[in-house]
């Protein structure tokens, strides 16, 4: 049975209600629950495709479904509808206000309602899609504090890369950290580029979600074959930032393997026709992040290279 349900809502100033909704897809007992969450940042749209396509895939498999899948396609509907990454009219990033509060602002109240609704799920998958500046390969990001619990399941998500990153206090206000703290295992997925949908990545993730559901005994069908991810910690990730402002002209492709010292791209100066900077790879490895948006300032992230034995 499919049902659209309200998670939490609040009145906007003029004749409209901000309503966070989910698509509840219920199968037979036993009642395990999987939460698929996306749309925290209004410019990240890959999750829109996954939410839509996963609902269709699960509808076809409903007789095989054991438990409940809640799909939350838009935690930040106002951002999505206005092509805005953040929360319109609010300074703080939505992924910095969890677990929310009923004593502060509307958005913190909404964040609190979302946490309350998801908490208790057997697994939550929080889908992000980079921003408009960077293209990412499909990857899972796990805080080192939760790695022991999350790594075994994350490996079934059919994504290319599993990044175990160090803890930072500021990250304690993310949805994933808050849910993990409450005992709801939550995996963060990053893939693609902002304001676009990369369908192949979405399909890859959906296969992974079905695989994880089989692992959780939520689907009565064999686990679809998935490729094992590369697992890495911060130590194997090299960053390339621009040291000059201008226009980035890439000389490599995303997902390409590069050698140490290889030219990754140029910072061009269209005014003079000159080159302000040549950017070279600091390590041999896989370009898992590559600058997509050409205008760069000094410091803009250009690429991340996954080094080591690949």
């Amino acid at each position: 049975m499919n049902m659209i349900e309200e998670v939490v809502s609040a009145h906007l100033p003029v004749g409209e209600t901000l309503r966070i909704q989910k698509n509840r897809i219920e199968g037979a007992e036993p009642k395990k629950r999987l939460a698929i969450v996306t749309g925290t940042h209004g410019d990240e749209l890959d999750g829109q495709y996954v939410a839509w396509q996963l609902a269709r895939v699960l509808k076809k498999r409903q007789p095989l479904l054991r438990g409940t899948v809640d799909i939350y396609p838009a935690l930040n509907p106002l951002g999505i509808s206005t092509i805005y990454r953040g929360l319109p009219g609010f300074d703080l990033d939505m992924n910095r206000i969890f677990p929310g509060s009923s004593e502060e602002t509307m958005y913190e109240y909404i964040a609190g309602g979302i946490i309350e609704d998801i908490a208790g799920a057997d697994l939550c998958i929080d889908i992000h899609a980079s921003n408009i500046f960077l293209r990412e390969i499909p990857q899972v990001r796990i805080n080192e504090q939760s790695a022991e619990t999350l790594l075994p399941l994350a490996k079934f998500l059919n994504l290319n890369f599993l990044w175990v990153h160090s803890a930072a206090t500021v990250l304690e206000s993310t949805l994933a950290y808050s849910l993990n703290s409450l005992g709801t295992p939550t995996l963060v997925v990053e893939m693609g580029v902002g304001m676009r949908i990369t369908k192949s990545y979405g399909d890859q993730l959906i296969t992974g979600i079905l695989s994880v559901m089989s692992q959780l005994f939520m689907l009565e069908e064999p686990c679809p074959p998935v490729a094992p991810p590369i697992v890495s910690t911060d130590g194997n990730v090299a960053f390339v930032n621009a040291n000059a402002s201008g226009i980035f002209i890439p000389r490599v492709r995303h997902e390409e393997r590069v050698e140490e010292g290889q030219l990754l791209g140029l910072i061009a100066d269209p005014l003079s026709g000159g080159v302000r900077e040549e950017l070279h790879s600091p390590a041999s490895g896989l370009i898992f992040t590559l600058r997509e948006y050409p205008v760069v300032n000094e410091g803009s992230l250009i690429a991340r290279i996954l080094g080591g034995a690949l």
């Binding site: 609040a10 009145h11 906007l12 100033p13 901000l18 009923s102 502060e104 602002t105 509307m106 109240y109």
Partner: peptide
């Protein structure tokens, strides 16, 4: 000038 619900 205008305000959403549930706000300080």
């Amino acid at each position: 000038q205008i305000i959403s619900a549930q706000t300080i």
